[in-house]
């Protein structure tokens, strides 16, 4: 196995609620090998979302170091972190990922607006991404004209349009029926296998977790 693409050392995260500390992650170590498809499970409130947010550079640890794709991100200032996210991480949340006033194609183009790309090039890349997720015939649809599964596939197209190394998905199938769930999981598995994306997926669904190459369990601030 090559160098881990994600490396956490002694990561603690404590929230404060009404002057009371709420410890969530308690000195966590984690190595994620490049190219793996990991499922993160655990009871509600165990800190799965918190952990994923830290790895994705959306939040900062109270203590400890986080290195992702060779970059110690806990040290990056806000602006650099945003830029780093746009280049390194693709995001899929449980729902409401898309801007309702933009078409599928425009939504997929969003991450490209941060780069100096000609219009035609942006368009081409968005179309390619939509083709990869099998929605080339839905490019001009608005999110409300799509099914939940199609919406998630558009989200995945947006997540890969910048060709990031890592995809993070927080309960990506949490709101989907069986058929759509299968479509989305198939797609993630394909992106992992064919494009070599490292995927970190939080899920409550054991069947979903089975599609992953590694399953980790988070409980009481520790990984089992």
């Amino acid at each position: 196995m090559s160098e881990p693409i994600v490396r956490l050392r002694g990561v603690r995260k404590t929230f404060w609620r009404d002057r009371e500390p709420v410890p969530v992650l308690d000195g966590l170590d984690l190595d994620v090998p490049e190219g793996s498809f990991e499922a993160l499970m655990g009871p509600s409130g165990s800190g799965k979302t918190t952990l994923l947010n830290l790895i994705a550079g959306l939040d900062r640890p109270t203590e400890g170091s986080i290195e992702v794709a060779g970059q110690p991100i806990h040290q990056l200032p806000e602006g650099a972190l945003a830029r780093w996210r746009s280049e390194t991480i693709g995001f899929v949340f449980q729902s409401y990922n898309l801007l309702p006033v933009l078409t599928a194609q425009q939504n997929v183009e969003l991450p490209l607006l941060l780069r100096r790309l000609p219009r035609a090039e942006r368009r081409k890349r968005a179309e390619t991404a939509l083709r990869i997720v099998g929605l080339e015939d839905r490019t001009q649809h608005f999110p409300r004209q799509l099914s939940g599964g199609q919406e998630q596939r558009v989200t995945i197209a947006r997540a890969i349009v910048n060709d990031p190394k890592i995809l993070v998905a927080d309960e990506p199938t949490g709101n989907l029926d069986k058929g759509s769930t299968k479509d989305v999981l198939d797609l993630l598995a394909r992106l992992n296998k064919e494009l070599g994306k490292t995927i970190l997926m939080v899920t409550h669904d054991p069947h979903a977790a089975e599609r992953a190459t590694i399953i980790r369990k988070l409980d009481k601030g520790q990984l089992a």
Binding site: A56, R85, Y96
Partner: peptide
């Protein structure tokens, strides 16, 4: 607010 948060997650700045 959520849309703005999604935009910022994918790399837009405040």
């Amino acid at each position: 607010l959520r849309e703005y948060a999604v935009l910022r997650a994918i790399g837009f700045r405040s």
